[in-house]
Design a protein around this nucleic acid. Structure first.
Lengths: 265, 265
DNA sequence: CGAAAAGTTGATCTACATCAACGTGCGTGG
DNA sequence: CCACGCACGTTGATGTAGATCAACTTTTCG
């Protein structure tokens, strides 16, 4: 289902190339950023809110979260960090981190110092576009999550998140079909969706009983994409760029036969 | 209370200079971006989600919102656009807008074409840092708002937003004391905070009755900053950068005498 | 000055939280 | 290699923050 540890494949490059045309030279320069590799165990903090950034990373394999913690123990997960994502690259323009990053699984990282970024864009000015674009993408994801937390029901939130993750992995070549690895407990989902664990569980069961998705311990499999998109209220192709109508839009265009089943299953 | 239409003063420059040191030449270049001026009435759409960007702007005066709308009428406001903010500058790396921007008041804008940005950074490479930093700031604001929508109570959300706006205006030289202009209806607040209008009203009244803030129709005045920060659960100085402990931190360090009064007023 | 927009307040409803108890897979150490 | 313990998942009962509905007041502005 997933291109697990194909050391040739770069999720980062796949991601960037989905939207931006870079020369082979520029791509090679980018790729050189991810040659180093370091293993970090699960549950380790890579960036700590309020502390100075130490170095930047590219996540090569495994999962992490961006999150903020309140002093009374409440926690909000802002985003999931997937293979191909940068971590802590804001350190090149900012002294202190405004959120934490913590690994959810054992992880393979390519660390690099900040001046590496400066040298890189000096020699490959076109890469600025790519880097800025990635920042913009991050903002778009935050924005969509704001809509979820502010205005969507529990079921909609869960459905929406699953579709979003699937799409992000797909663009990076990390899911060929409609299943993917997602080593995320319900407690973590709760903190990402602004819900209680219990309610996440119930929402998930509803979606499963309606025949839309199955979430195993480490894996997700979408059984009825059209139906899931319907529940998620997925609008447009916000994770995509460019003019071509993509698979998603086509799906949305099709019959809504499954709609009724999912409303109050 | 507010430096209203001092045509000399640039909120954009003030904002950037709060964190980044630029040469006079670079500053002059930035300033040249905002020489043009165009008046746009209230309620006009400057950027429309899903549509191509036409041009970029600097907001010179007035308020606007970034928002996303669902097909069933639900709306989530992502952020308020204040004087000194860029609008639509993502157009230089992205074809389509992932959210809309709409004016809340009559507004003064300086429009400029995207290639202007490219030329600018070609001649003033140091400005890249400033531009990237602004993008990062935007993300930090989204992040903090995610925490609000996901994990904070209604009262906390309202208090937090008011403090955040005050701080942002202050950094730009748009509020000298503890009052500021905020031409925002309760309905708009509701869509920003993920609440109903009725509940925004009640939360606001509670804060007022507790003697913390007064929100008039177009203006806000903080009567008890310490208390308001307390309710908001304001942690650290997320809108600031740099190592110096700032006014906020000092306030937080002080006595918490007012705490009890605000808990269940 | 009249009507629409904005704000206020009470009554009632509900989505989701909280509390509690129990099931289940699985990693670890004896 | 088995069993014990713990993290995770599941389900029911009950509580509550905030939504919704409804009516009324106040402000704004053409």
């Amino acid at each position: 289902m997933t291109r697990q540890s194909d050391s040739q494949h770069s999720p980062l490059i796949a991601h960037i190339q989905s939207a931006i045309d870079l020369s082979d030279r520029d791509l090679a320069a980018l790729r050189s950023l991810e040659t180093a590799s370091e293993t970090v165990p699960s549950g380790r903090s890579l960036v700590r809110e309020g502390k100075a950034f130490e170095r930047a990373y590219i996540l090569k394999d495994g999962w992490a979260i961006r999150h903020k913690d309140l002093s009374d123990g409440r926690r909000q997960i802002l985003d999931f960090v997937l293979p191909g994502d940068f971590v802590g690259i804001e350190g090149s323009v900012q002294r202190r981190a405004d959120h934490s990053v913590t690994t959810l699984t054992e992880v393979q990282m390519s660390p690099f110092p900040f001046d590496r970024v400066e040298n890189l864009i000096r020699e490959h000015p076109r890469l600025i576009t790519a880097l800025v674009w990635l920042g913009t993408r991050q903002r778009a994801i935050f924005a969509e999550r704001l809509v979820s937390l502010g205005r969507r029901s529990a079921q909609e939130r869960v459905a929406h998140l699953l579709v979003e993750i699937w799409r992000r992995l797909k663009i990076r070549g990390l899911s060929a079909d409609r299943s993917f690895r997602m080593p995320v407990t319900q407690a973590v989902l709760a903190d990402a969706l602004g819900l209680s664990v219990v309610h996440v569980n119930r929402s998930l069961r509803q979606l499963t009983r309606a025949g839309l998705v199955e979430k195993g311990r480490e894996t997700v499999s979408i059984s009825d994409l059209t139906g899931l998109l319907e529940v998620a209220g997925f609008e447009g192709a916000y994770l995509n760029d460019g003019p071509a109508p993509d698979e998603l839009v086509q799906f949305l265009e099709r019959t809504r036969a499954n709609r009724a089943a999912t409303k109050q299953a």
